[in-house]
């Protein structure tokens, strides 16, 4: 936002940073990840055009913001979902989450995450069981046309939560091996969240270009690592911080969703607190909540807090005159 470059250029750079994980996902889960992403992007862009026409606004589908939303929706849903899901998600994200509230720049919640929360509530089965085990030697068309029930796999976080550490190590390999597997992305999970390496590279590039700052990702991932280390193990201070950061959607959320210009705070200090809040809520939901993964809800819950944070840490010289006290109304 602070940079002088046009919004359009920033948006398309973000899209470019999201392409490598997408390409990799085709090799991990098969060609249908590409199809889901394409459907998602197309329906988001179409929904954007329809909403803007309906509400009598200027159609701005070229700026790429709907493309980002579409890609992110696809990135955070399981790779084996029916193709209808991203379409419905697009309606929720673009029409209800964004344009009803005033269009680009006015959404309160991150549209892609809103779509995921909506899909998880509406299709609890598909959204919690359509995980696929990574392809080993088979072709990328391996999963096309097969029934998902037959091949579904549990995500690492779900295994960890429901069956414990022993079952986790058994199904995903021994300790030193597991980090590399997770880092490269060969594990079950949502379409775009598995490869830590590519997401970090993309995120670092965005920071290098000055499109996002390091404050939110650093404080969020740091909090997740610290709290998981403290409370995530059998006894205090025996959790595995590195695994906590690499598993689930922590990295994708930290670099591409928590840093969304519109729904995150603008001030540096509030950004740090915002990141800590997301991290803490993530660990809370992961360890004690009803869901195995908490990044999505943690960011959603902190979104409305961002404007509160900004108003608390407003630089003095920009502060408007205090509203008249007393009287209440």
């Amino acid at each position: 936002m602070r940079s002088n470059e046009s919004v359009e250029k920033i948006m398309w750079t973000v899209v470019a940073c999201l392409v490598p994980p997408l390409v990799l996902s085709v090799f991990i889960f098969g060609i249908q990840t590409l199809i889901i992403t394409a459907i998602s992007v197309i329906s988001c862009v179409a929904m954007e055009a329809i909403s803007q026409k309906l509400l009598g606004r200027k159609v701005t589908i070229k700026d790429g913001s709907a493309v980002i939303t579409g890609m992110l929706i696809a990135f955070i849903i399981p790779p084996g979902v029916p193709y209808l899901l991203p379409v419905l998600g697009a309606v929720m994200a673009i029409y209800i989450g964004k344009h009803l509230l005033g269009g680009i720049g006015y959404n309160i919640f991150n549209p892609a995450l809103l779509a995921r929360a909506f899909l998880l509530a509406t299709f609890p089965v598909a959204m919690t069981s359509a995980w696929l085990p990574p392809l080993q030697d088979s072709s990328i068309f391996h999963y096309m046309g097969t029934s998902i029930d037959a091949v579904s796999a549990a995500t690492p976080l779900a295994v960890l939560k429901e069956q414990g550490l022993a079952a986790f190590t058994e199904s995903f390999g021994a300790a030193p091996n597991i980090y590399t597997t997770f880092f490269l992305g060969w594990r079950p999970g949502s379409i775009g969240e598995t490869s830590g390496l590519l997401i970090i590279l993309g995120g670092l590039y965005l920071i290098y270009r000055g499109y996002i700052t390091w404050h939110i990702p650093a404080s969020m991932l740091g909090t997740i690592a610290l709290l998981t280390w403290a409370f995530g193990g059998e006894t205090t201070f025996s959790g595995d911080p590195l695994l906590a950061v690499l598993s689930g959607g922590a990295l994708l959320g930290a670099f591409f969703m928590a840093t969304d210009y519109v729904s995150c705070p603008t001030n540096k200090k509030s950004q740090l607190i915002y990141g800590i809040g997301i991290g803490a809520l993530t660990v809370l939901i992961r360890l004690k909540g009803g869901y195995p993964e908490g990044v999505c809800y943690a960011i959603l819950l902190m979104n409305p807090v961002s404007s509160v944070l900004d108003s608390w840490f407003k630089p003095k010289r920009f502060a408007p005159p205090a509203p008249p006290k007393g009287g209440g109304k």
Binding site: G97, I285, G290, N303
Partner: peptide, 22 residues
């Protein structure tokens, strides 16, 4: 009406707490 829509979005976010046992 828009206040209702926003409240609905809040309710969706608060679903994240469901099943929480601290």
């Amino acid at each position: 009406p828009i206040a209702f829509i926003v409240a609905g979005q809040f309710a969706l976010a608060f679903l994240g707490f469901s099943g929480l046992q601290i």
